[in-house]
């Protein structure tokens, strides 16, 4: 099984971190993983995105042209990546910022009001973690436990952050699983 996931949003929405945590989690599960960011001028003011591959096979090209899942944190990202999604693919839409629905009927759409949930949790910064919870629940590419382990490793110097981020991930996952 090979998951090819594109995560996209405004710079500052934390899409790079989401991707890195998922990649890290995959590594902890001894899967083959790669993470590849967009970089350069397209990041200034525009959208930032990263490609995450998690696979049981060695990874060839780290570049994704037909994702199995897309996370759109803002409208330009949805417009840009929805058409590329594979048939039957997973589309996570940050419905706090995007009113538009999926245009395609051959994909699985999950609408996640991540900013609203994050502000309910008392910290807008964890909106990306809500979405991360949703994407791992929807794709099952890695387990929640591995993501939390990855988080603990990446933020070893800030253990205080763990609790709120875990809550955010759980909320995102619950949303998908309740569906």
């Amino acid at each position: 099984m090979t998951h090819e996931i594109v995560m996209a949003g405004f710079g500052g929405q934390g899409v790079m971190l989401m991707g890195q945590l998922m990649t890290y989690a995959g590594m902890l599960e001894n899967k083959q993983v790669s993470w590849m960011p967009s970089y350069g001028p397209e990041m200034r003011g525009g959208t930032a995105n990263c490609s995450v591959i998690i696979s049981d096979e060695p990874i060839g090209a780290p570049i994704i042209t037909e994702p199995t899942a897309v996370v759109a944190m803002n409208l330009p990202s949805l417009d840009k990546f929805e058409p590329a999604l594979r048939t039957g693919g997973i589309l996570i839409i940050n419905s706090s910022l995007i009113e538009q629905k999926a245009k395609r009927s051959d994909v699985k759409e999950y609408r996640v009001p991540s900013n609203d949930i994050a502000s309910e949790l008392g910290n807008l910064k964890v909106a990306n973690m809500v979405v991360l919870g949703a994407i791992i629940a929807a794709t099952k590419a890695v387990s929640q436990e591995s993501v939390m382990q990855a988080f603990a490793k990446m933020f070893a110097k800030k253990p205080g952050l763990l609790e709120i981020n875990e809550k955010a991930i759980k909320r995102g996952a619950a949303l998908v699983e309740g569906k």
Binding site: Q20, S34, M36, P37
Partner: peptide
């Protein structure tokens, strides 16, 4: 190349 420099792998 730019891609190898920017990508992350274990």
């Amino acid at each position: 190349d730019g891609a190898l420099g920017q990508m992350m792998e274990p």
